[in-house]
Nucleic acid binder design. Structure first.
Lengths: 214, 214
DNA sequence: ACCTGAACACCGTTCAAGT
DNA sequence: ACCTGAACACCGTTCAAGT
């Protein structure tokens, strides 16, 4: 049963629980990047033998999954009330904040955001308000996906390997003859790539669009 | 000079060029997945010694970069004319199609889409039309980013590791008491995750929103 | 029962040697 | 000049042995 209480986290052994392991792994990733997460390295960090890790986790993929869960569960999504618009806004901001807490994991978290339990609760809250306010099911599903997709794409760009400086340089290096429009707005183009102010402006525009569309 | 002609692709050696290597690597990735791209494996594929690869590519990261370039350059973006809206639509569809040709690379391509040369040409075309039609620089930058981000997020979800079946099962397994809204629209929620029809519907809604906002 | 070192089959890459 | 095998320093994981 998926809904039964957690079995006290693989107890016994040496005090350590599975979520202790996940948390230690998360710290390691935050400190030294995703590529530093190795079975050997994590075991050393925990002061245990490498193979002992396999008592908490069947495989490295499962370890990574546990780390993603730990990261996703760290910041509990707020309880959102009010209109679909207010709820969407609150949850979009919270989701972005949650993603930004662990930049090294953004790319991985972006690929399986939907089925995590905490995210489904959020979806329920937003979709519920949308339906109550007259969205058709198709409109609600599409609208929710757009908001959610916007957050994902934004954070992905924001935390991407090509930082703002790289982007600025690349735009500045463009020959103005062939790229007149892009050159003339290069400042705004870089601004728009990051920052919560820009994020919120884009989000509000998107919510306006949805409001106008339904 | 970035604008000078390419130096005939590291000539000499054994007929092979750097882009031959990249193309072979791309085929390998398409056929067997990203994890199959190893220096040893690719060399075997090409019938050369492993170390010979280092004549075409300084490091594995550089090889991956060359593969991403090959994938991005494969489908030349169409020449788009007309309004900002028509151009946005054409380029969004083309970008999606380009991403979908190599699903194994979507996650990597999603993280550095901006600075690739072909993408900058697209950006120029769309931004140019937006400015010509009265967008402010800030509006143009934000609007372009939203469209672009939408494509990215859509394809990411569409090609994500949790396929449609997984999503369907997960939604079906939700207790209806706690997730009434989500359960009642589960069909639409799954539909909206994939398919070009759904993609275009969402895109049009987004373009409508932008149109209304500026 | 719980833990773990040694060993295996892989990596990317350096280095020195082949032709 | 061009190519490449051997070797090194890593991986994840199996297996058999420690306590």
């Amino acid at each position: 049963m998926a809904s039964s209480a957690e079995p006290s986290e693989v107890p016994g052994r040496r005090g350590l629980t599975r979520s202790d392991v996940a948390r230690a792994a998360l710290e390691l990733v935050d400190r030294s990047g995703l590529e530093a997460l190795t079975m050997r390295g994590l075991a050393a960090e925990l002061g245990i033998g490498t193979m002992t890790l396999y008592g908490y986790v069947r495989t490295k993929a499962e370890l990574v999954d546990a780390v993603l869960d730990a990261a996703a569960g760290e910041l509990a999504p707020p309880q959102a009330t009010g209109s679909w618009r207010e709820r969407s806004r609150v949850h979009a901001l919270a989701f972005r904040a949650s993603l930004l807490r662990h930049p090294a994991l953004v790319a991985l978290r972006a690929r399986q955001p939907l089925l995590r339990r905490s995210q489904l609760r959020v979806t329920e809250e937003v979709i519920g308000a949308m339906l109550a306010e007259g969205f058709t099911p198709a409109e609600a599903a599409a609208s929710f996906r757009m908001v959610f997709t916007y957050v994902l794409g934004s954070v992905l760009v924001e935390t991407g390997p090509e930082g703002l400086d790289t982007a600025r340089d690349a735009l500045a290096a463009l020959p103005p003859e062939s790229f007149p429009a892009l050159r003339s707005i290069s400042e705004e183009a870089v601004d728009v790539m990051a920052g919560s102010t820009q994020f919120e402006a884009g989000l509000d525009a998107l919510l306006n669009g949805i409001e106008a569309a339904v």
